[in-house]
């Protein structure tokens, strides 16, 4: 008895190995978490300097419509109103999601319910390919095809929210579609069987059972697409025109948080208001993506079929 106890108390090589593995994964986890938190802290602390160091009021920043960092208004206040970019970012995000969602849903339904064979064989690879195309390529195509096209039809320069929306639409379509496909595939087959067995048509089954059962996942897919649209910088910057104006039409040059950041980040001096205010924009971006993240998690939890 005593011997057995001793035997189990002794550290076997297996146990050592196990401890080693655990330590490594723990260290890796701590490393990743600390990176995330230091980024958050770094960006936010820079971003907050606009308000603490330079005394810009939050209202002037979030609601102000004049963006000319480095200049001051007649009253001596710096002109750093970020509202045009915030509005631009939200507009292109919402429009591109509105445009992409029906197409993504339609494609996903086709690939899972109507013709799984064609879907797997042809559409799946195409969509995976689309996901992998670098955003600069999308932007370049937008610049050479979409912008002149809009210019021809609507006049003006062609740059603007509409061009950005169309480019983002193509960019988020594969993301949303492939997530929607996964969601629909995850709907158990026996839901469909139960519906068919009662004499439901295929469309009734899709509409009343499959889509309903998949709705939390589909919403997550849409939000993922929106997160991608919100965070996309390069492609948008190439086609939106980058004028820091509140967009009053879809075809006049506008800007987004990301496009102003990429345009100006190389041109400012560290510690100045011009630089810090860019960090403020970055902070908004960061918290928005955090928000999208939390939202998808929350939906996933709420929607997980009880």
């Amino acid at each position: 008895m005593e011997e057995t106890v001793q035997h189990f108390k002794k550290r076997s090589p297996k146990r050592k190995q196990e401890r080693f593995g655990k330590t490594i994964s723990l260290v890796a986890t701590i490393f990743i978490v600390s990176i995330v938190f230091s980024i958050l802290f770094f960006v936010a602390s820079r971003g907050l300097r606009t308000f603490t160091e330079h005394g810009v009021s939050a209202i002037d920043f979030f609601a102000g419509t004049a963006w000319r960092p480095g200049e001051v208004s007649d009253a001596g206040e710096p002109l750093v109103g970020a509202f045009p970019m915030i509005a631009g970012s939200f507009l292109v995000t919402i429009f591109s999601a509105l445009l992409a969602t029906p197409f993504a849903l339609g494609a996903a339904i086709f690939m899972t319910e109507i013709s799984p064979k064609t879907g797997k064989k042809y559409l799946q690879p195409v969509i995976e390919l689309l996901v992998g195309i670098p955003s600069v390529v999308y932007g370049f195509i937008g610049l050479t095809v979409i912008v002149p096209f809009i210019r021809q039809i609507f006049g003006g320069t062609g740059f603007g929210v509409l061009a950005a929306t169309l480019v983002l639409f193509v960019m988020i379509l594969p993301t949303t579609t492939s997530m929607a496909v996964d969601t629909l595939n995850a709907v158990p087959r026996y839901y469909r069987e139960a519906s068919f067995a009662m004499g439901a048509t295929r469309w009734q089954t899709i509409y009343k059972v499959v889509l309903r059962a998949a709705s939390p996942g589909l919403l997550t897919a849409v939000i993922f697409g929106m997160a991608r649209a919100f965070g996309e910088a390069l492609a948008v910057q190439m086609v939106i025109g980058n004028a820091a104006l509140v967009p009053d039409s879809l075809t006049t040059p506008a800007s987004t948080l990301t496009s102003i950041l990429t345009m100006n980040m190389g041109n400012t001096v560290l510690g100045t208001l011009e630089n810090d205010v860019l960090w403020s924009l970055a902070t908004i971006l960061l918290f928005m993506s955090l928000f999208f993240n939390i939202l998808t998690r929350w939906i996933g939890k709420k929607g997980a079929m009880k």
Binding site: P188, Y191, S195, A197, M198, G199, R212
Partner: peptide, 26 residues
Amino acid sequence: VGMVFQKPNPFPKSIYDNIAYGPRIH
């Protein structure tokens, strides 16, 4: 010709909506 399956397969809906599903689609 109705069918009952090997594993109970109610829809992820309320009891009422499960029963009302058939009449509704018709």
